[in-house]
């Protein structure tokens, strides 16, 4: 079918293709094609092997090298950043500890002052209390004496009023006995 078409087409062709058949099988053109093909192939081979391929190869290798270097540099920078972060955190922790220490010291200082003040206040209070109780005891004792005196006098006056002769010693002892009871 295909060859029929080809034959018909070629046969139909005008004067130039008077020779029927495929141009591919026109052996008279073979030396020409083969010669120019070999020329073209040799030229391409020389251009490629002498200039193009080494050049592209070196460019690719160089690029690979650049990429590797860049990745290494990036890795280094990353390490640096990590170190910096670590140093920052360390400094932060240290500062925090320092602050804690200062706070504790201040607290201890305040506590000490407070304790001293409290102790002093306690001593003052105790002294005041002792003084007060002494005074109270004194006042109480004073009051007892006065009561005894009043009772003796009253008793003597009462006895005198009833017409008796008051024996002051007896009265005093009687009053004392009463007061005790």
């Amino acid at each position: 079918m295909a060859t029929e078409t080809i034959a018909a087409g070629a046969a139909h062709g005008a004067t130039e293709t008077a020779k029927a058949g495929m141009p591919q099988l026109d052996f008279s053109t073979f030396p020409n094609q083969i010669f120019w093909l070999l020329v073209a192939l040799v030229v391409i081979y020389l251009v490629l092997s002498r200039i193009a391929l080494p050049r592209i190869g070196s460019v690719l290798a160089e690029r690979q090298g650049t990429i590797t270097n860049d990745i290494a540099a990036a890795e280094g920078l990353r390490q640096k950043a990590l170190n910096a972060e670590k140093a920052y955190n360390d400094a932060l922790i240290q500062a925090r500890a320092e602050a804690h220490k200062i706070v504790a010291e201040a607290k201890a200082e305040i506590q000490k002052t407070l304790d001293a003040a409290t102790a002093k206040a306690d001593i003052d209070i105790a002294a005041k209390a002792a003084e007060s109780s002494a005074r109270i005891a004194e006042i109480r004792a004073g009051a007892m004496d006065a009561v005894t005196e009043v009772a003796n006098d009253t008793a003597k006056e009462l006895i005198a009023a009833f017409g008796g002769k008051a024996d002051s010693r007896a009265v005093t002892s009687a009053v004392a006995a009463r007061l005790k009871g």
């Binding site: 087409g9 293709t17 026109d26």
Partner: peptide, 11 residues
């Protein structure tokens, strides 16, 4: 209608 499908291959 004329066909020259192979003329393009002529050297």
């Amino acid at each position: 209608l004329v066909f020259h499908p192979l003329d393009q291959f002529i050297v």
